[in-house]
Simulated assay, not measured.
Amino acid sequence: MSTLPKIAWIGLGIMGSPMAENLIKAGYAVTGYTLEQDKLQRLADNGGTAAGSIAEAVKDADVVITMVPASPQVEAIAYGPDGIVENAKSGALLIDMS
């Protein structure tokens, strides 16, 4: 059983996908969400777990990492319906790298 924190990665674009994949290679369990199905498939093909929603991605995560275009998107995924704040477990760490 791994003692590494479970990671949720929101935003699997040009920078997010390879960064999430590096965490997987380092032994972390990474669950990801993004709007593009091909990027979710890429994550799954590299050993991660593709989530169907932000809520699903963050529900068991110890650490939530976001990498989206700008502040409006960060606010939407953090505070919007089915967002991070509403669905992450108590004590989860949110790291925004947008």
Rank of each mutant, 00 (worst) to 15 (best):
M1W: 03
M1P: 12
M1Q: 13
S2W: 06
S2F: 04
T3P: 02
L4N: 09
L4V: 02
P5T: 06
P5I: 02
P5W: 06
K6T: 03
K6D: 06
K6A: 04
I7S: 04
I7C: 03
I7H: 04
I7A: 01
A8P: 07
A8F: 02
A8D: 00
A8W: 01
W9Y: 15
W9R: 06
W9H: 12
W9Q: 07
I10C: 08
I10Y: 06
I10H: 08
I10S: 08
G11M: 09
L12R: 08
L12T: 12
G13E: 15
I14C: 05
M15V: 15
G16C: 12
G16H: 11
S17E: 10
S17Q: 13
S17H: 14
P18I: 14
P18C: 14
A20T: 10
N22H: 15
N22G: 14
N22D: 13
N22A: 12
L23E: 05
I24N: 13
K25P: 13
K25I: 15
A26Y: 12
A26N: 10
G27Q: 07
G27F: 07
T31M: 03
T31Q: 01
T31H: 00
G32I: 01
G32S: 04
Y33E: 04
T34H: 08
L35S: 15
L35R: 15
L35T: 15
L35V: 15
E36R: 10
E36V: 12
Q37F: 01
D38G: 01
K39D: 11
L40C: 05
L40W: 01
Q41H: 02
Q41L: 02
R42P: 00
R42E: 10
L43A: 12
L43G: 14
L43H: 14
D45T: 09
N46F: 08
N46H: 10
G47A: 06
G48A: 02
G48Q: 03
T49Q: 04
T49N: 04
A50E: 01
A51G: 03
A51C: 03
A51M: 00
A51D: 00
G52I: 00
G52H: 05
G52Y: 02
G52W: 01
S53K: 05
S53N: 06
S53G: 09
I54M: 00
A55G: 05
E56N: 05
V58P: 08
K59M: 00
K59H: 03
K59S: 11
D60I: 00
A61D: 05
D62F: 00
V63A: 04
M67I: 13
V68S: 05
V68T: 07
P69E: 10
A70R: 07
S71R: 08
P72I: 02
Q73N: 12
Q73H: 14
V74P: 07
V74I: 14
A76Y: 01
A76G: 05
I77W: 01
A78M: 09
A78P: 02
Y79A: 10
Y79L: 11
G80R: 01
D82Y: 05
D82I: 02
D82H: 07
G83D: 03
I84C: 04
V85D: 07
V85I: 14
E86N: 07
N87C: 05
N87H: 10
A88D: 04
A88C: 07
S90F: 04
G91H: 10
G91D: 11
A92D: 06
A92S: 12
A92P: 09
L93H: 13
L93Q: 11
L94E: 06
I95H: 14
D96V: 15
D96P: 10
D96M: 11
M97H: 12
M97Y: 14
S98A: 15
